[in-house]
């Protein structure tokens, strides 16, 4: 690994100050868990290597999980292991726990952070689809203060985000109206452990109890476009429609049309299309299961 300087940030504001100080004159990277950054830098050429690395791993203010006025707030430094262990997240969003569980392995989940995973912005980012399906917002801190945007817009393209060089992702927020919204995340990789997703899908919707129809349905797809996307035609099709297996299957077929999968050495575009249809249907079924369990007291106890 090439030599670089490390400056440690005490908290988020200090980190942003350090970014403001160093970005004008140096190539700067931020390190949190380091699981992506260091793996990238190990064999990087000199032209690729940073001069300064801002270490935010001790910025304790970025490590909180709390329900606030705006919704469920998850600090950017919360690790995947902490997400899996959080009682609040386990209660409200088991899909987020499932998504975290599919990332890397125990060692990488202990180090890797939610914020770090999102800023990599790889198309297959496993934290992405569930949060997009829950209309999550992200808070970005820069020299001029905070700005907030939907996560779906934070992702710009493969390995590209809306983050400016002097900005820091500080918070992921699931809005109040979506707290407890039934959701399901499914990932298909070539192995169970340490695999990149060929396709990952998250579905989420409210159930209108009276009419048994889909309300505010969301389907998010990963690894099948330059970034995590909403399957908009599937979502439009489901809105207000009666909940039925056929509708879920049709939404799966429609989702295929929303995606632009590529063929690479892991899978062909055709295979990915097949997976989109199947996983979308299953994710919708899974989200419905979550809702049903919440309805029955027996299910809750289980």
């Amino acid at each position: 690994m090439k030599a670089f300087e490390v400056v440690a940030a005490r908290d988020a504001r200090h980190a942003v100050a350090l970014l403001a100080e160093h970005t004008p004159t140096a190539k700067v990277k931020v390190i949190a868990g380091g699981t992506d950054l260091l793996a990238d830098l190990k064999f990087a050429s000199a032209s690729h290597a940073p001069d300064v690395v801002v270490d935010i791993s001790r910025a304790e203010d970025l490590r909180t999980i709390a329900v606030t006025g705006g919704g469920l707030s998850i600090g950017a430094l919360v690790t995947h292991t902490e997400i899996m262990a959080s009682p609040a997240i386990r209660e409200m969003f088991p899909a987020l726990v499932d998504a975290a569980h599919t990332i890397g392995a125990v060692q990488t989940r202990n180090l890797g952070t939610l914020g770090g995973n999102l800023v990599t912005a790889v198309p297959s980012v496993d934290s992405g689809p569930t949060l997009v399906a829950l209309d999550a917002q992200v808070t970005v801190l820069g020299p001029g203060g905070e700005r907030r945007m939907p996560l779906a817009e934070f992702f710009v393209g493969p390995r590209r985000t809306a983050l400016k060089p002097d900005e820091l992702l500080v918070e992921i927020l699931i809005p109040t109206e979506n707290l407890g919204k039934p959701a399901c995340f499914l990932k298909f990789g070539l192995r169970k452990g340490q695999a990149l997703a060929l396709v990952n899908v998250a579905a989420s919707f409210w159930v209108d109890a009276k009419t048994q129809t889909f309300r505010a349905p969301r389907v998010a797809l990963g690894a099948v476009a330059p970034k995590v996307i909403h399957a908009t035609s599937a979502e439009a099709y489901l809105e207000g429609r009666a909940i039925a297996p056929e509708a879920m299957a049709e939404a799966g077929r429609l989702a295929v049309g929303d995606a632009k999968p590529i063929s690479d050495f892991r899978a062909s575009a055709e295979y990915r299309k097949h997976l989109i249809a199947v996983l979308t249907r299953r994710a919708l079924e899974g989200a419905y299961d979550v809702w049903q369990k919440k309805q029955s007291p027996a299910g809750r106890a289980r």
Binding site: I31, G34, A39, K42, D55, A105, V106, Q107, T108
Partner: peptide, 27 residues
Amino acid sequence: CDVGDCGACTVMVDGKSVNSCLMLAGQ
């Protein structure tokens, strides 16, 4: 492997297992 895939470098830091190849000494 030096990139966190193989786990041969696993140690425990504050009671949690980590890939020591993916953590800076300063951290």
